[in-house]
Design a protein around this nucleic acid. Structure first.
Length: 660
DNA sequence: GACCACTA
């Protein structure tokens, strides 16, 4: 423990004679040199890059010979970053950008920025204005019509669209974006972008034309021309090709008699799904929560295991993989692990060259698959592999761009079994009725005299938050007999009075007050994992899992997760948060006896049908909806999605189908 | 302008 009296007074911030060196140091870009040490550099006579020697570093407080040498060599190795800082400081931009520039542009980042200052837009959090300033500083006479600038705006526009899930954008929208930034020759900018190979242009399909009509062939409608970032455009093409390839090379795995042998207890649709996997190269199994998707998968796994067929199970998230493993009693991993991801953007070890060796690959929660991961998965499936995607297209779409599951369904290119009979919730119960109405875009008034569903109106997010606490701690246990530990609060947002942060504070105050002895947690706190730690003893935990703190140690926590107990060491503690209230996104894939959904007014803009549907289908016995978002709720449910994703996959799949 | 996964 450090007592306040032994702490050194903060050294006043030095004024640097060399602004580039000063900016480099104070932005924390010198690896291994902390804030406090930076302030001590001038005291050791180090104020310019030429002053940096092991001998001078040795004069600093708490720096021994070994550390001095290490700091000296880390300074030398940061030379590429230093060069970028030089460019940024002269342009009046933040030095902090230099580290991400060196990361994403490589060791010759400075040279690349001198060649094309707008390459700066390749980093996150850089605005066009910043890149323009760098250009003016580096290229005397640079102007808004520079072709490199136009090219960068095209890429930037497509990248922004990708953040909203789109893989393609109509060329007209890109032209409008170029015009808005003062680019006179939009067509030239698009051509430059396409020539740089970062961007693909997709010509509209040729219109139907009767050759004998004697008329001129009609021009394709140029308004249908689209553009994509090459990585997403190509990924969609790879998925479409891969689906066609697997469909063409599949051989039947088992005969109908074998299906009958494992089908005990399955309904007709579920049996059909089992038969479908055995026959088709790529097949889909869809349906809402409680329709028996997992039971069906378990039957498929039983059948294949009995036949000695190699089956691989995977899911896009750690928690979904864990659940799949429990339900099927067969190992399941994340799709990333299945493909042996090589780290951040490092590609996958399992690919076309070293494909998977399973005969059947099953991916659960397939609505979470984005187009790049899907293309990597399909590439790693050799000819003859059967791929089964299981998911609910009505739930939240993938985080990354693409609309893979929905496009596969819409294309009609692969067989789909849709399960619609509800087994879990009481059939005809208020939760089930509301869920199926929302699934089809309706929001009927709630009619639930038995209080299975209760709507609690609130006038603002502050009142909404108070209602939530009251429901969890008082009304729901008292009136319905569901204890607080079986109730989960679900909200769209982290911030604001009705976001996870404030709600958790208020709920902790009521349910388990304490001062947070270990990393802000006390015994009895509910926690949620925000990252995977699947290797911890004895069984690890997955991102999104909810548990309860059962004990504390020396900087460690014992947590009882639904899947089992885990001792969480200090370095994993930042990946735990309080879990009485969690976001809808995080709640996806889990269910609780009682659920309180909060819809605060500030979430109005992000409400969509999939979000509302996902939120309310988390409830098994009781659902309270604290409603403060006014007309935005009905609008969100009515419109399919506030912003439907623009993709090309369904069209590509249909084209392959018509050519076959 | 908000949310969210995976990986070392």
């Amino acid at each position: 423990m450090t007592s306040p009296s032994t702490r050194t007074a903060p050294t006043p911030a030095p004024v640097w004679p060399d602004p580039v060196f000063g900016a480099f140091c104070t932005a924390g870009l010198w690896p291994g040199l902390g804030k406090r040490a930076v302030a001590e550099l001038p005291g050791a006579g180090i104020t310019t890059p030429d002053d940096v020697t092991a001998a001078k570093l040795l004069k600093m407080p708490r720096v021994g010979k070994q550390r001095a040498e290490r700091l000296f060599s880390s300074f030398l190795s940061a030379a590429p970053t230093y060069e970028v800082v030089e460019l940024l400081v002269k342009a009046g931009l933040e030095a902090k950008l230099a580290s991400s520039a060196a990361d994403s542009l490589g060791d010759d980042a400075a040279r690349r920025l001198r060649d094309d200052p707008w390459a700066l837009l390749g980093l996150t959090n850089v605005r066009l204005g910043d890149a323009d300033r760098l250009a003016i500083s580096l290229l005397p006479g640079a102007d808004r019509q520079d072709s490199r600038r136009g090219r960068a705006i095209v890429v930037m526009t497509l990248r922004t669209a990708a953040r909203d899930g789109h893989t393609v954008l109509p060329a007209d929208l890109v032209v409008a974006a170029l015009r808005a930034e003062g680019v006179a020759d939009a067509a030239a900018a698009i051509t430059a972008a396409v020539e740089s190979a970062d961007v693909l242009a997709h010509e509209p399909p040729e219109p139907e034309w009767d050759e004998d009509s004697g008329e001129e062939p009609p021009e394709p409608d140029p308004a249908l021309r689209t553009l994509s970032l090459a990585r997403y455009g190509m990924a969609e093409e790879e998925v479409a090709e891969g689906v066609a390839r697997l469909a063409a090379t599949a051989e039947r795995i088992a005969d109908p008699a074998a299906v009958r042998s494992v089908s005990k207890g399955l309904d007709e649709a579920q049996k059909q799904a089992v038969a479908q996997v055995l026959g088709a190269g790529v097949s889909l199994l869809t349906g809402g929560p409680g329709t028996g998707k997992s039971r069906t998968v378990a039957a498929v796994v039983r059948l294949l295991k009995a036949k000695g067929t190699e089956v691989a199970l995977a899911a896009p998230t750690g928690r979904a993989a864990k659940r799949l493993e429990e339900l099927t009693d067969h190992p399941a991993v994340t799709v990333h692990r299945l493909l042996q991801a090589q780290g951040f953007g490092g590609g996958f070890a399992r690919n076309e060259e070293w494909p998977l060796d399973a005969d059947v690959v099953v991916v659960d929660e397939a609505s979470m698959l984005d187009v790049e991961l899907t293309s990597a998965l399909i590439e790693a499936c050799p000819d003859g592999t059967h791929l089964l995607l299981v998911g609910d297209p009505a739930q939240l779409p993938s985080i990354g761009p693409g609309h893979v599951l929905g496009d596969l369904i819409d294309s009609g290119a692969v067989p789909v079994t849709e399960l619609s009979t509800l087994y879990r919730q009481a059939e005809g119960g208020a939760i089930a009725r509301l869920a199926s109405a929302v699934r089809t875009g309706e929001l009927p008034p709630v009619d639930s005299p038995d209080r299975e569903v209760v709507v609690v109106p609130a006038s603002g997010s502050g009142e909404a938050a108070r209602r939530v606490v009251q429901l969890v701690t008082d009304s729901i246990p008292r009136a319905l007999g569901i204890e607080p530990r079986n109730v989960q609060v679900v909200t769209p947002v982290h911030r604001g009075p009705a976001g996870t942060i404030e709600l958790n504070k208020a709920l902790k105050e009521e349910l388990n007050p304490g001062d947070g002895t270990v990393f802000g947690f006390d015994v009895g706190d509910r926690v949620v994992a925000t990252a995977n730690h699947l290797d911890l003893e004895p069984i690890g935990f997955a991102n999104g899992e909810v548990g309860v703190v059962t004990g504390t140690g020396e900087g460690t926590l014992d947590v009882a997760f639904a899947s089992g107990p885990v001792t969480v060491p200090g370095d994993a503690l930042p990946d735990l948060k309080h879990g009485w209230a969690i976001t809808v996104h995080r709640a996806q894939g889990s269910e609780w006896p009682g659920v309180v959904v909060v819809l605060p007014p500030e979430a109005g803009g992000m409400l969509s049908r999939p979000l509302v549907y996902t939120a309310l289908t988390r409830a098994q016995q009781h659902l309270s909806i604290v409603h403060a978002s006014g007309a935005a709720l009905a609008r969100a449910v009515r419109e399919v999605d506030v912003r439907p994703r623009r993709t090309r996959l369904a069209q590509l799949l249909r084209e392959n189908l018509s050519q076959a």
